[in-house]
Design a binder for these strands. Structure first.
Lengths: 199, 199
DNA sequence: GTCTATAACTAGATAGAC
DNA sequence: GTCTATCTAGTTATAGAC
């Protein structure tokens, strides 16, 4: 499978990264408050006290997951927008990347979406600010499509929300061993998105 | 406001109903595991121990919320299907009722969707079975639209999910004091839904 | 960097007086 | 049907040995 010269040494994954992955799975399955540090530690092959050598506490784990996820989403979206030359191309790129990300990284995406209430106000605000910027990016592309292509949009904000939440929800039912791949689903969703906008 | 001869006696609301409403608000804000019986009791004007005169425990509160919500959704959907005479009418009725319900009852709808993991396996299965029936109802209407109207649907299951999750998400951003009413939003969403299906 | 032990606290649920 | 008091268990986080 490996193409490069680098050995497939999975143990190279840092302890910090492994803890985040395990915490993500637990927060996804049982929620932030339903997960204990003991359970996370056990799945990492250590005791609860040892986790505090890597993170200051449970809340920092959630913050890192949510913050990293949002940052990755914005990065991908900005790339998609930069690569498109027309509003249609940019929107298709946005939808494709959003659907693919929420399918491939469905655990962390759902945790980042649903568990924000468990963060302190300050940390919550940091994550929400990134998310607001993301939504504005989508709204701008839709607004461009209206003025340049005459897209039929009853309300930019509502349609942007409808579009994004439809794509976000892919993460709630997508399964890695399911009937369709993330790419196939992204194809269907880009078509649905364009159908929602055609005059 | 009251039209009938019955007095507007809000205290007629039973203690059981009030407890459920308060619990719904808390489960929505902080999640099931993030909510304590003491908090629910305080908002009901009683002490934690008193709650157990009305419900056997915390989990029963969540089960009642989730089960009642799903039952109401299925009822509304069945009515919408029965009242339509064509697949297009039935689908529009389904979308309208689904959007309206998730806007008007957004707290309980979100709790019923997001907190199922906290239920025992048996109780979870009860709720999921109702939800499965609901989804099949939508898939059938879409299948009818394909054969009778030639709707353009790449994949019935995927499009049914896309449609339903898009409408469900209205509950995550709808606000009672927002710019648009639940009915106005339902109008926009029925149009979006039909646009997604047109050949 | 992991362990054991423990501090300090909070949870759901119950018993029995009123 | 509500109260107070309490039980039992489990929580995050820390301290200090190794």
């Amino acid at each position: 499978m490996e193409k490069g010269g680098r050995p497939a040494d999975n143990s190279a994954e840092s302890t910090e990264t492994r803890i985040l992955k395990v915490a993500t799975r637990h927060f996804y399955d049982r929620g932030y408050h339903g997960t204990t540090m003991r359970e996370i530690a056990a799945d990492c092959g250590m005791k609860a006290g040892s986790l505090y050598n890597h993170y200051t506490g449970k809340e920092e784990l959630l913050f890192r997951i949510a913050n990293d996820t949002m940052a990755e989403l914005v990065d991908g979206a900005q790339t998609a927008v930069d690569q498109g030359t027309t509003p249609a191309q940019r929107l298709q790129g946005l939808v494709r990347q959003h659907v693919r990300y929420h399918a491939v990284n469905r655990l962390q995406a759902k945790v980042a979406d649903d568990q924000l209430h468990a963060l302190s106000q300050d940390r919550q605000a940091v994550v929400l600010k990134i998310r607001d910027g993301y939504e504005r990016l989508v709204e701008e592309v839709i607004a461009d499509g209206i003025s340049e292509h005459g897209w039929a949009v009853a309300d930019v904000k509502i349609v942007a929300f409808a579009l994004l939440t439809m794509c976000t929800a892919v993460g709630t039912w997508f399964r890695e061993d399911g009937r369709l791949s993330a790419d196939q689903i992204a194809d269907i969703y880009t078509d649905l998105a364009m159908a929602m906008l055609q005059p």
